[in-house]
Design a binder for these strands. Structure first.
Lengths: 162, 162
DNA sequence: GGGTGTTACTTGAAGCATCAACCAATCACC
DNA sequence: GGTGATTGGTTGATGCTTCAAGTAACACCC
């Protein structure tokens, strides 16, 4: 079967998307590591917990919301637990499940890190785009996610109980 | 100084962008690793070399084009050199520099891997978007790159000699 | 022509992600 | 109520990235 190669416009869009995907994580990590000793993924985990009811989520639900695999989350949570930012306890309703809960220290950490992080997000991403582009970006990413993560999307939309 | 928090639309766009950035590399890596025993970054390095004059580039130029740091590229090239896909030799014009050149085996590898990779790019990204969105994506990424990589952009546009 | 500083690249150590394997609890079903 | 399959999660090994440090060549300048 013969390949449909990329035309000029497709190639231009693709090369730039690759560049963004390659560079953005580094920028976010650098700021957060410097100012809060957190990976961007660490921060995202803490942030998702901070917005959940009781600041608690099941590991599986947390993995879905953070677009990560369960093994990855497990390692990260173990490290954060060692720093007393998160605590784990067995889920009373399902013996197989474990809940992750933000500790008070973890909450303080998020509150302290948030302004600097939002500033970074603004200066590197949102403030560079006009309002129309922000909307376009959302729609484009939505379309991509239906293909990249057909199941995971559900996790973002429906409120999974712990 | 008080933080300008994200409004609803900004937050929606941001969360989805994070998800894409988190998931896309994994999808590309998985396909290429399975079909060609290459990381996406490995493939990208080989692809950039394959398009360069004499299939040769300086390490610095190659790092710029692949949006990576020099240490990262150095490790990757060492591994690819071990598989005889790339060869390194000192640059005759500048004793400090070293050139990386695609070997015939490396060329074959790119040629063999390209169709499957392009198919993955199409099915996961480009074919999910309509033509207008592809253009928007390019413009958005262009805007982001002026901030994410103010110098690197030059490397993409001007043809660096080896 | 000998500092001084910069550029180009490599290396080793440390940390994080990923994969496969594993265990434990629950569910389905007869 | 017992067996097999599934779900939920953890762990250890491997590999890649990153950071800091190091080496070597070049450029400038007095």
């Amino acid at each position: 079967m013969d390949t449909r190669w990329l035309d000029e416009g497709e190639r231009a869009a693709w090369l730039r998307l690759i560049a963004v995907v390659e560079l953005l994580p580094g920028v976010l990590d650098t700021q957060l590591r410097r100012d809060a000793h957190l990976t961007h993924y660490d921060y995202f985990v803490l942030a998702m917990l901070s917005e959940a009811p009781d600041r608690t989520l099941r590991m599986t639900a947390l993995a879905l919301r953070t677009n990560a695999t369960l093994p990855r989350l497990s390692h990260v949570v173990r490290r954060l637990e060692g720093r007393d930012l998160i605590e784990r306890f067995p889920c009373p309703e399902d013996g197989r499940a474990t809940n992750a809960r933000l500790t008070p220290a973890g909450w303080d950490e998020v509150v302290a890190a948030a302004p600097g992080h939002v500033e970074a997000v603004r200066s590197h991403v949102l403030d560079v785009l006009n309002p129309a582009q922000v909307t376009q970006l959302q729609q484009i990413c939505d379309a991509l996610l239906t293909r990249l993560d057909p199941d995971g999307l559900m996790g973002q939309l429906y409120d999974l109980r712990r």
